[in-house]
Nucleic acid binder design. Structure first.
Length: 600
RNA sequence: GCACCCGUAGCUCAACUGGAUAGAGUACCAGAUUUCGGCUCUGGGGGUUGAGGGUUCGACUCCUUCCGGGUGCGCCA
């Protein structure tokens, strides 16, 4: 439909003013509610070719369109805005095109042409020294949703993560556990593995601070004391031992990481995210180290007097960056070089590698991509940093030291509990088993968090208001889930009453209501929105779309009755419209990683 | 200090990449069910888009100078 209008406008410009504009370059926008019409074409830019004022230009084009383009029934021009009305028959035809009779899930709406591109999306990638928190939730939901969106848009997508299982941070937890742990295990204490290891990371920090304070009373400057605290030196020693594969250290490292992985897996399962392949820093840092040495030989990097290895990016407007410490151990950058290489080896023909990482690391990735380019990998230009803003709380920044971090496990549990009390108030799930009810509460609680975190433009810093996020009204996940449940109820009733749309005769549908036209238009937007969301890596586009769709449906629902409609064909049509709306909500929410219930 | 990002209704967010009188939600006020799920729907007030200047038919959007906030510039990851 849009194509036909664009073609028509292109033809009109050519015929009237001998001006060439490819149909694809015709910019159409939806007509504002207060004006009559469906699509609007802005004529200001073309007044110079028509040699008429914008309004007259609009009138001329409009007249041409009504005469020559079948789908266009009328037009009006306000200043330089040409508002185009679509004939009812064409609108219905557009619906028939989307609607696929019995098998709605196979609707042409949801079919995207394969792009032939292979994309790897990295997300999550936690450190293994503490449990996941609210910030990780945004990361996981964003990366997972972008993966789903890219896949739906026709790409071959692989979800991966790099597990930061080595480094000084895990050594700190290990050391504190040795010193203060008295052999505590998740089994014995009943504490989730990641929480247990996190507990010792905190214990390390506490001991470290005490030592620093102690040194300062002995006359050390703060900076100096922070470098000389015995427990820190011990942790650094441990890291060196780890890199030389000291058996005792290695065994402890494997044990404690094992606890963390068990804990993480439980959390991932609750979150509803998964991965096609896992990478471990402990595997990739060696590859990175080799490539750094190679780069040194080739003269891409240089060695300082103390033996540390650096890259000089002053020519690119950046500064010098460390790649290997003087003691030969690796840094963050070292292993990231190795990880990137491994991925391009693992996925031959990879077209794009997306890193879902917070915006505080923008500089890091800028440097990483430059280094890869300097090393001669031309695929470096296909690496992309999907950068997102931090999550703030009403009280301000999350700070682990001040105990204001919102724990992921706890938050998900609380939201499910809230969903429980809300649902029980409503009393619509009689007949559910305890198990079914439990699943529903988790679906609603999780939907609320996911939607809340994904509806905001990823690039922007956002505020997570716990009180507001558990509200189930307004622009929220549960509102959309509710709408789906409501439509499902309609479809169940239609089924009971034997109202089927299998044999609907669309030729006999006429005089449809504005609400119905709005709904058809909204449904037709799906492919466009998906495309934009994929191009901009933004689930927020989908969230906005599905919210608008739900609102449109609720308006339609409030205005028009289905089962009291005496015209049987119109009744069938409304059921069909409801069915396709339900499916579109389901698919769209699916792109956000949110499931929708039939009853709630 | 240097670099990048952000600033829109009381609050949380939109605005189709330069288009009409800047829209939603929330909160507040007033309404709606002899109807299929009221976690719904309708209406109302609420704005100098941080400030000034520039570009043009037209600016929240682009350029520029300020102001305010954030992040980065670790032999941390």
């Amino acid at each position: 439909m849009e194509e036909q209008i664009k073609q028509g406008i292109s033809d009109a410009l050519k015929a009237l003013y001998s001006y060439d504009l490819a149909p694809n370059d015709v910019a159409l926008q939806p007509t504002r509610k207060e004006f009559e019409g469906t699509y609007t074409f802005v004529t200001f830019p073309y007044a110079r070719f028509s040699k008429k004022n914008p309004e007259e230009t609009g009138n001329q084009i409009g007249t041409f369109l009504v005469e020559n383009t079948e789908v266009i029934s009328a037009f009006n021009t306000v200043k330089g805005f040409l508002n185009i009305s679509i004939s009812e028959a064409s609108q219905l035809q557009s619906f028939v095109g989307m609607f696929n009779g019995k098998d709605i899930s196979a609707s042409s709406l949801f079919k995207a042409k394969p792009t032939g591109r292979t994309v790897v999306v990295e997300y999550s990638s936690p450190n293994t020294n503490k449990p996941l928190h609210l910030g990780h939730l945004r990361n996981n939901f964003l990366g997972n949703s972008v993966s789903r969106i890219l896949k739906a848009a026709g790409n071959d997508v692989h979800k991966v993560q790099i597990i930061n299982d080595r480094g000084i941070h895990i050594c700190k937890s290990m050391l504190a556990w040795l010193k203060f742990g008295e052999g505590e295990t998740p089994e014995a204490s009943g504490l989730k593995g990641d929480h247990l290891v996190g507990k010792y990371y905190v214990a390390f920090d506490k001991a470290f601070k005490l030592e620093v304070a102690d040194l300062m009373t002995k006359g050390f400057q703060k900076e100096h004391a922070e470098k000389e605290a015995p427990i820190l030196l011990e942790a650094q020693e441990m890291l060196k031992k780890w890199e030389s594969k000291d058996p005792e250290v290695y065994a402890l490292w494997e044990k404690m990481n094992g606890w963390v992985y068990d804990g993480f897996n439980t959390t991932y399962e609750k979150m509803g995210v998964d991965f096609d392949q896992l990478y471990y820093e402990s595997d990739t840092y060696l590859i990175g180290r080799d490539r750094v040495m190679e780069g040194l030989e080739k003269g891409v990097f240089f060695k300082k007097e103390d033996g540390s290895i650096w890259v000089d990016l002053t020519g690119e407007g950046l500064d010098e960056k460390l790649l290997l410490r003087k003691d030969g151990t690796s840094v963050y950058m070292t292993q990231d070089i190795g990880t990137a290489l491994m991925r391009f080896d693992d996925y031959p023909g990879l077209n794009q590698l997306i890193y879902t990482v917070g915006n505080e690391q923008e500089y890091h990735f800028k440097v990483l991509f430059l280094i890869l380019k300097k090393l001669g990998y031309d695929w470096a230009s296909s690496c992309y940093h999907l950068s997102y803003g931090m999550v703030d709380l009403p009280s301000g920044k999350m700070k682990s030291r001040e105990g204001t971090v919102v724990d992921a496990d706890e938050l998900m549990k609380e939201m499910a509990n809230t969903a429980k009390s809300r649902t029980e108030e409503l009393g619509k799930i009689d007949g559910f088993t305890t198990e079914q009810a439990g699943e529903l509460y988790e679906m609603l609680g999780l939907g609320a968090i996911k939607y809340f975190l994904l509806k905001v433009d990823p690039r922007k810093r956002m505020l997570f208001n716990p009180a507001e996020s558990i509200e189930f009204q307004g622009n929220t996940g549960p509102f959309i889930q509710y709408t789906h449940a409501r439509i499902s109820s309609i479809l169940r009733k239609a089924n009971q009453l034997g109202v089927s749309f299998d044999d609907i005769d669309f030729d006999r549908v006429n005089d449809i209501h504005q609400m119905e036209k709005d709904l058809i238009y909204a449904l037709g937007q799906y492919p466009d929105k998906l495309k934009i969301a994929a191009e901009t890596y933004s689930p927020a586009i989908i969230a906005q779309f599905v919210y608008d769709l739900a609102k449109d449906y609720n308006r339609f629902y409030a205005e028009l009755s289905i089962f009291n409609e005496s015209d049987k064909t119109l009744q069938q049509f409304r059921v069909a419209l409801s069915a396709l709306t339900a499916q579109t909500i389901k698919v769209s929410m699916g792109l956000l990683g949110i499931t929708v219930p039939d009853r709630m």
